[in-house]
Simulated assay, not measured.
Amino acid sequence: MLWNPGGGDEGLFEFLCTLKRLPTPHGEVFRYRSPNTDLLGILLERASGRRIADLMRDKLWTPLGTTGEIAITVDREGTSRASAGISLTPRDLARIGEMMRNGGMANGRRVVSASWVEDTLTTGSHEAWQRSDFAPLFPKGRYRNKWYQTGEGSFCGIGIHGQWLFVDPQNELVVVRMSCQPDPVMEALDYDNIAFMKALAKLV
């Protein structure tokens, strides 16, 4: 999306159409791929006839009661980058975690369905996870609906360069970590982050 020097000048959709299918059957091995989320955003826009920014404002930000400015990156054609480039304050990001901790409720109203939250937190293939590069991060883990399950009751959203949204319902804990790590993925720091959040949960 013109973020990286020397990148192409194609739009997001044009770029997505150049990607090839992986040789292994779908669902056999968990692999996080940002283009899948970008394509999901495009599908949502085309199915609804509305921009992602407008959908998120009406379906998520307004019901959550966000208070800060929120922005999303777009390509040269105005297509929203659903997988990255969404900027909001730590407090407003925490509101998402708190809503998920409360089963999809916020400010006395339902934001997402209880069945979707339950599906997110109780399903997903543990076998596909075990075959993935992510297995050491959460040995009992699974992945579903864009959320990582630790297999120990907590769950999280993980972004590149050190962004974390960690939710531990049992200990009534929501942690937002914002960072500017120099590399997109720094595995050693991921393990430190998990250890810190587990230790923090024991203190609350």
Rank of each mutant, 00 (worst) to 15 (best):
M105V: 15
C180R: 14
F15S: 09
T62R: 15
P184F: 04
D58A: 01
V175P: 09
G49D: 00
R142I: 08
P169L: 07
A135V: 04
L203Q: 15
W129P: 01
A199G: 12
T123E: 11
Q163F: 13
D183N: 09
G124R: 12
A53P: 04
L19C: 06
T79F: 03
T73E: 14
Q130C: 09
R110E: 15
N145D: 00
T24R: 12
P35G: 11
T18I: 03
T24W: 12
M186Q: 12
S154M: 10
M56K: 03
E10Y: 12
V204D: 09
P182D: 09
T73P: 05
D9R: 15
M178S: 10
Y143D: 01
S154R: 11
P169Y: 12
G85C: 02
E127R: 14
I158C: 07
K140I: 02
V29R: 01
F166G: 08
V117A: 06
G78A: 01
V117L: 06
L200S: 06
M56H: 03
L121D: 00
R21V: 10
I70R: 15
L22F: 06
G151L: 00
I52V: 06
Q130V: 02
S83H: 13
G104E: 02
R177Q: 15
G141D: 00
L12P: 04
W164P: 07
L44H: 08
S48R: 01
R81G: 00
D168T: 00
R46H: 14
C156G: 00
F15A: 10
W61E: 05
S87N: 14
V175L: 14
G97P: 10
D38T: 05
R142F: 15
A188K: 08
S48K: 03
E10D: 14
G65V: 00
R110T: 15
R50A: 13
L12A: 09
Q181C: 05
T79M: 03
F13Y: 12
R76D: 14
T79K: 02
E187W: 13
L19H: 03
T123V: 06
T122F: 00
L40A: 13
A195W: 05
D183Y: 07
L44M: 15
D92G: 12
F196Q: 08
Q130A: 15
T120Y: 10
N171M: 13
F134H: 13
N171C: 11
T24D: 11
P169V: 02
G27Q: 04
E14Q: 14
A188H: 04
W164A: 03
T37E: 10
Y143P: 10
R101I: 06
R110L: 14
S113R: 12
K198A: 05
D38Q: 05
V111G: 12
D54A: 10
R81I: 13
R21D: 09
F155H: 10
T67I: 11
R144I: 07
D190S: 08
L173Q: 05
H161P: 01
R57A: 09
L200N: 06
G41P: 11
C156K: 01
R51C: 01
R95C: 01
I72A: 15
T79E: 13
R95K: 15
T18S: 13
P23I: 02
K20C: 04
N36I: 07
T79H: 06
D75L: 02
A135W: 11
G41C: 09
P23Q: 03
T67C: 08
W164H: 07
